[in-house]
Nucleic acid binder design. Sequence first.
DNA 1: CTGGGAAGAT
DNA 2: ATCTTCC
Length: 436
Amino acid sequence: MSTDALPQSMVALVDCNNFYASCERVFDPALIGKPIGVLSNNDGCVIARSAELKALNIEMATPAFQVYPLQNRFGIILRSSNYALYGDLSSRVMQVLDSFSPSVERYSIDEAFLDLSGMQDSVSNICQQIACKVPIYTGIPVSVGAAPSKTLAKIASHLAKKQPGRQNVCVFEHADDPELLIWLKSLPIEEIWGIGRRLGQKLRQAGIETALQLRDTDHRWLKRNFNVLVARTALELKGTHCIHVDDAPEPRQNIMCSRSFSKTTNSLAELKEAIRFHCQIACEKLRKQNSLAQAVLVTIRTNGNRFGPQHKEARAYPLPQATDDTALILKYAQEQLELLHQPGLRYQKAGVMLLDLIPHRPMQLGLFQKEQASISEQGQKRRQLMQTMDQLNNKIGKQAVGFGLARKEANWQMKMAHRSPRYTTCWQEIPVVKAK
DNA sequence: CTGGGAAGAT
DNA sequence: ATCTTCC
């Protein structure tokens, strides 16, 4: 290689606008133009807002009970989280994005990074196409930001959304684009991707208050006085593509399922019911990503916001062998729960975590490998049972079959007073069209 | 009356 | 293990 410059890297971030609120509108157009808020699990607080709700100065994470009294006056519509719907619409959006680049990283339910390096078409063109096509195909409006690095693409997408004239697209072909520099100069340090509240404070103490300042701070100094991540972020701001688009992420290293009770409980039976539920969901996820767990951890905790005796503890238990068998994992989880549980305390939350996950490589048994076959005969049967359960649950609906009964009204079930229909994933709830 | 899940650094 | 960050 000579001194030729490396091919310019180019990353796009596609971000769904007010994703959950937009999802609610797709099958209920009456919501268009109205202030919509989507609530967290248990209908606790607002976690997504339509533009109209933002305009009413309802902040993110506002407790639901503070919004209820305003609903009538401002015509605010609140919805419980409908993850079945959001997940499905998310994969539709991702599918459309797949047609724009061979390398698409599903970064979160509503965001994706696209590697646009070395594309034939101009980056601006591609980004405009994305911003135009995704809403047509899915009903979800998106913003698209593109730049030489992920961190800059994040900033670009922010501008795409924020600045009205841009029509949801913002492209910086070069990291030294004068317009970008002006923006970096006014961008507060803690609004940069990867710099949270804590680091922001520390950086400010060191006199670094804007994105531009961070970008121009010595790399080694940052590494020494902060950490590699901050140093890397500074490089990214310079346009060096350090955080690559990862379109084939490794399987999860651990899987956690936990939830708060709608009311605290001191009943061991109720805790067991919750653990059983979480265990089954966790094991489903485990099998879905084709892994085996080597340890299971059970955690319970009382409500730390209340007075009274507190208890917050987790117990990990190493499984005798790596497994994805719900029945087995469940058995050990229940044992751990009994060891943890202190009668008389009121618990607020319970959870299960599967740890030390390793890939499961199903052995191809030869036709005459009798010995091996007999050893794993029980295992094979269990495996089939699990597979059948997963298939049924996939087909009919979450937890259609499982271990023990899942009571709809159970205390640990989510409060979901305002959930919209699962239009796309549940036969009973598909939209009905009336034609004259 | 204020969420759940995961990764990675230290 | 704990802390921090992200969405």
